[in-house]
Amino acid sequence: MIVHIIKQGWKTTNQNMVYILLFSMYQLVCGIFLYRWIEVGIVSISQRFPDSNLMDARQLFIIEGQFLITDGDFMLKYLSPLLIFIGIRWIVSPLMNAGLFYAIHHKDSHSSKPLFLQGVLKLGSSFFIISCIHLLLSSFPLFWIFSFLKNTLESYTTPMSLLWNAAPILITYIVYTWIIHILFMYIQWGKTTNNNITSPIVFMLKNIVITMGLSLIIMIIIGVVTALFFSTSMMWVGFLAIIVNQIQYFIRVYLKIWEISTQYHFWVQKKEPQ
């Protein structure tokens, strides 16, 4: 059954190629911004890296560089464009989801208006609220985790004991955010398909093994692909690496939409008999 659902998800994904292209373009533009932002940083740092003939200058560069990293004002100045960028992306993200979810669900309707825009208009606000709650839920444990890590860092004796103390908490947190991620995908599907969020929560928790299994399979594929891209950019430098880097946006979007469609089919199929 799982294989069947994944296959169906793949089919739906291919049917929505236009959104994949649209989303990849969007990510590409974001990628160009990120590339420029990092470039400015790297250039300004390497311009200050002294010539090897200058007396002790490189050691001074390293000493002072460490202080700059820990200097709040300096870091804020440098990080603020990135923070604004992430903020905008975070606001746009639920709206894109709204359009996409709506379009996938109503793919057979023959409306004259574009489905994507209809979705943004109809579901945008609720998806935004859902996304706020999602952020809240996935970030509130960070408060405890930070204080816990701070205590652990101050009191650890050996690197192993640090690992043993910190690892369970970190793994718990990652699993927790992952579950929340799937749960909210179902909440969004519930909202899209029958304007109800209780049933998807119950549904997801009842079928937690399958839903997580589906997600896990696609996550592994995403992980392998990301690792491939990562090693490519480590090894090759030059035009080819940049091209590969651009292609990965397309593939990532493809895989993400595949996960969304797969969960959609599972939701629709199990729900219907009821």
Partner: peptide, 25 residues
């Protein structure tokens, strides 16, 4: 702040691209 006492016009383009791609990933 000796760090800003120096400024170069030369930057190795290969190092620049590699670091950029790794960070962006």
């Amino acid at each position: 702040k000796h760090i800003n006492n120096f400024k170069s016009t030369l930057i190795n383009p290969e190092t620049k691209t590699r670091w950029n791609l790794v960070l962006i990933q």
